[in-house]
Amino acid sequence: MKPPHAKATAAEPSAVNAVHDSSTRSFYEADARARIAGLLDRASFREFVGPCRRMASPHLTPLDQPGAFDDGVVVGEGLLRGRRVLIAAQQGAFLGGGVGEVHGAKLTGLLERAVTERPAAVLLLLDTGGVRLHEANAGLIAISEILRATLAARAAGVAVLALIGSGNGAFGGMGIVARCCSAVLMSEEGRLSLSGPEVIETVRGVEEFDARDRALVWRVTGGKHRFLLGEANLLVADRIDAFADAVLAALDGLHESGDSLVALEREQTRLSQRIADYGDCRDGLEIWRRQGIAEPERLPLLDTAEFLAAAATRGTPCN
């Protein structure tokens, strides 16, 4: 039996299928440029401050680390199923997708462009551990600038979507940025949190968080748990076209105008209730069980469609 994501094959000759070839592939396996190519309409992408500008970080050479011509992030504009979007994709394999001075400024500039260009959305394809430690101060300030620019774009009426389905996920300050977006779209493979499990294990000990226990790490930070908690608005299969579908679904009915007092007071209540309901839990399993999901231990094994069906049965509204 064919797995559901093995639809179009390279043997099919038409141009339409050639497009499907790149869009049905794994989001997780693709690199930054392949993710953009797969998401956007064919040949519609126009890169800003591309590699020929050689805008590499100047802070790496003294540390004997070669820079990258795009400083590990690809930004530009294009069409997603005919809708004009601004898009950014972090290159997770380059220094863990870490945000430095140039990398961060490209993201901030893109978000600022959204205020004047008013695209249908800004898509942030996050693949990062947060601050790039080689230029830590510059990275921290840059993330603060990205955070403010994200909120400013939303206040100006532009939806900003975080797409998280990558190896590094969205950690550190960029995990905070993700939750400042209009919506978060994740795959099961994606992870979203603040401190990496390795950091917690190093500082607090393996009893606090065993970073090598991958199943535990996913039950704490992974896409399924984040969806069940209401942290990810949509959970999609690990296919680039599934993320494209999710972008359209998220934009459908979303009227961005920034956070209102009423919305943030509701969020305050929701986050307080979450601590009241689950504040004594230390594993996703305990939370899922309390949500009334039968046999929660099977959730990690389900494919996305089965998982969403199981998740729909939970009694407690996600908070």
């Binding site: 690199d31 440029r33 590699p51 020929c52 070669p66 990258a68 795009d70 394999a93 380059f94």
Partner: peptide, 12 residues
């Protein structure tokens, strides 16, 4: 006009 492939990462 130009093409970029690969990533600046260990062994790459």
């Amino acid at each position: 006009h130009h093409a970029l492939v690969g990533v600046v990462a260990s062994g790459n």
